[in-house]
Computed example of a mutant assay.
Amino acid sequence: MSLPTSATSPDAPSIADDLAFALRLADAADAVSMARFDAADLEVSFKPDASHVTEADLATERAIRDLLAAERPADGILGEEFGTTGDTARQWIIDPIDGTANYLKGIPMWSTLIALAIDGVPQVGVVSQPAIGRRWWGATGHGAWTNTPTGEARRLAVSGVDAIAEASVSFQSIGQWRDAGRLSALERLTGAVWRDRGYGDAWPYMLLAEGRLELVAEFDVKEYDIAAHLPIIAEAGGRLTAFDGTDSLSERSVLATNGVLHDPFLTLLHAD
């Protein structure tokens, strides 16, 4: 999957329609996932890689796929639970429940991630966090947005912080950095910034787009973990690359920043 390096606008009405449809997909997903959230009899099993999967993960992805089959039958799909169907220039990328470990424990910090990639580049993204009543969305040329308590949409913009010493960052988890052989880089990062926390999953990327964080970094990501974030962060004025700075996720790593600090963070993280 390629990463956009500039905010080029494809056919605006088409992208606007796709974004509206993605928001309807999120509505359908939220109805299914919330119906089983914190249920005492939730069915939980294990995948071959030993990660958890719940009945809600499967049902939520099915709901999204059913609506896609009905209204976008020519489009391809890449979903975490049911793999890839179709081979077209337009592909919907779905993580039905990002944060399954939180979901099955009754912790409300989980999301449904929905993206549309055109020619391999994510152009539409929706991140829905229904257990706390939050949603973020964006599309190339149409800005990045979130909902407010009053029901109005608010446009997103990354922060203007331009000094690492004043930055607030999320590193996801120490275990990720250890497994990636990057603990020394994490120590440099946390020693150089104003504040560091491991918020986890989709939420810190949205905090970045809201201007509340200056960096989010993680390892061992798949396309469905990150595709929905790309248009939102890009349209909010941020930058997202692989950990080595390349505009690709081929290394299965992510470095997302407010843009102005991207190169300084890269220098800091790769100092050894």
Rank of each mutant, 00 (worst) to 15 (best):
L3K: 01
A7H: 07
A7I: 10
S9D: 12
D11T: 04
D11M: 00
P13S: 03
P13W: 01
S14Y: 00
D18E: 14
D18R: 13
L19M: 12
A22F: 09
L23D: 06
L25A: 11
A26W: 07
A29W: 05
D30Y: 00
D30M: 00
D30K: 04
S33C: 13
M34L: 15
R36H: 12
F37Q: 14
D38H: 13
L42A: 10
V44M: 13
S45P: 07
F46I: 06
F46L: 15
P48R: 15
D49I: 10
H52E: 09
H52Y: 13
V53C: 08
T54M: 10
L58K: 15
L58W: 09
I64A: 14
L68Y: 05
L68W: 05
A69L: 13
A70R: 11
R72M: 12
A74W: 09
A74T: 15
D75A: 15
G76N: 14
I77E: 14
E80Y: 03
E81W: 13
E81Y: 12
G83N: 10
T85P: 08
T88H: 09
A89V: 12
Q91W: 00
I93M: 12
I94W: 00
D95K: 05
I97W: 04
N102S: 08
N102R: 02
Y103I: 04
L104F: 01
K105F: 00
P108T: 08
M109E: 10
T112E: 05
T112F: 03
I114L: 12
A115I: 14
D119I: 10
V121W: 07
P122G: 08
G125N: 11
G125M: 14
A131F: 02
A131N: 07
I132T: 09
G133Y: 12
G133C: 13
R135Q: 11
W137R: 07
A139R: 02
A139T: 03
T140F: 00
G143C: 08
G143L: 02
W145G: 03
W145N: 03
N147G: 14
P149G: 13
G151N: 08
R154V: 10
L156I: 08
A157Y: 06
G160A: 06
G160H: 03
D162M: 02
I164W: 01
A165Y: 02
V169G: 00
S170A: 11
F171V: 14
I174P: 02
I174Q: 13
I174L: 08
G175L: 06
D179R: 05
D179L: 02
D179G: 00
A180L: 06
G181I: 00
G181R: 02
R182C: 03
A185E: 09
R197K: 11
R197A: 13
G198I: 00
Y199I: 15
M206T: 00
L208C: 10
A209C: 04
V216E: 07
V216K: 01
E218Y: 03
E223M: 03
E223C: 00
I233F: 10
E235V: 07
E235M: 11
A242T: 06
F243L: 11
F243N: 10
G245Y: 04
S248K: 00
S250A: 13
S250G: 07
E251V: 02
V254M: 13
V254R: 05
A256S: 01
T257D: 13
N258I: 04
N258W: 03
P264R: 11
H270V: 14
A271C: 05
